[in-house]
């Protein structure tokens, strides 16, 4: 009996020769425990060494392997091929980002956004000696924990219509990261200057797809709506700044 296979239609873009991406088809074995990423690795190892894509941890934590699978942004290491029945499965680079090559997209703009929200612990005064930690109760930890789980996979950007229409929109993960520090009991900033902008929280029209596609349950949509309340209160009540 011939082993079962499945067809992968993979977007190829080689800037030296292609004007725009084209789909190329490959037949790969269909095994119950293979993820989409295993299919791509099989192509690269055995069928066509010229296919380029990013991956590393293969356990859903490094955030490298986000791609558009059958029209949905997914982590390819955590998406089983078997989910797609008999196939074929269309695999394209994450939408909303410039494509460098094949399935590899440009993430420098995303990183610049992350950097812009001061994603570090802001404290006033001298740092105490390295003999004792700042106290933080489990409840205080819980207040921001969820927003600290982001793996920077950018699936949420790819799903966000506001971002796709306006690439300058600060976007879900960066705002969630800002909130991760805002809500940390050890932090002393509220990042009002970078968040209270049309290009930042007020650009969000609450589609909620960022939260739906997020593989780590960060719920960036919630982070954004919560900051809208914070910003509104702060604008109305000057003393409510922290």
């Amino acid at each position: 009996m011939a082993a079962e296979t499945i067809r992968l239609d993979v977007a190829r873009y080689r800037p030296e020769e292609d004007a725009e991406p084209v789909l190329q088809s490959y037949e790969v074995p269909l095994r119950p425990d293979w993820a989409v990423l295993d299919g791509l690795a099989h192509i690269k190892d055995h069928l066509d060494g010229t296919l380029s894509f990013r991956w590393s941890c293969r356990m859903g934590i490094c955030g490298s392997c986000g791609m558009d699978v059958d029209g949905e942004p997914r982590l390819t290491c955590g998406t089983f091929l078997a989910e797609y029945g008999a196939g074929p499965v269309r695999i394209e680079p994450l939408k909303g980002f410039p494509v460098i090559r094949d399935l590899v997209v440009d993430i420098d703009g995303f990183l610049a956004k992350l950097s812009s929200v001061r994603p570090w612990l802001v404290r006033e005064g001298e740092e105490p000696p390295l003999t004792a930690e700042y106290a933080q109760t489990p409840a205080q930890l819980d207040a921001y924990k969820q927003y600290s789980m982001c793996i920077n996979c950018m699936l949420c950007y790819s799903a966000c219509p506001v971002y796709v229409l306006d690439p300058d929109f600060l976007g879900p993960a960066a705002i969630a990261l800002a909130q991760r520090y805002n809500l940390d009991s050890r932090d002393m900033d509220d990042r009002f200057d970078v968040l209270n902008l049309e290009e930042a929280v007020w650009g969000c029209t609450f589609v909620g797809d960022c939260t739906r596609v997020c593989p780590k349950h960060v719920d960036p949509a919630e982070a954004i709506q919560r900051y809208k309340v914070t910003a509104a209160l702060r604008s109305v009540l000057p003393w409510s700044g922290r």
Binding site: E127, L130, T131, A132, E133, Q136, T137, L141, Y144, K145
Partner: peptide
């Protein structure tokens, strides 16, 4: 220990005891 405390001072979300210690 001082390196781990340094990480804490930089914001690492270490799991905590009820009284707030690491």
């Amino acid at each position: 220990p001082r390196e781990l405390i340094q990480l804490e001072h930089w914001g690492c979300p270490w799991s905590r005891e009820p009284d707030g210690r690491v």
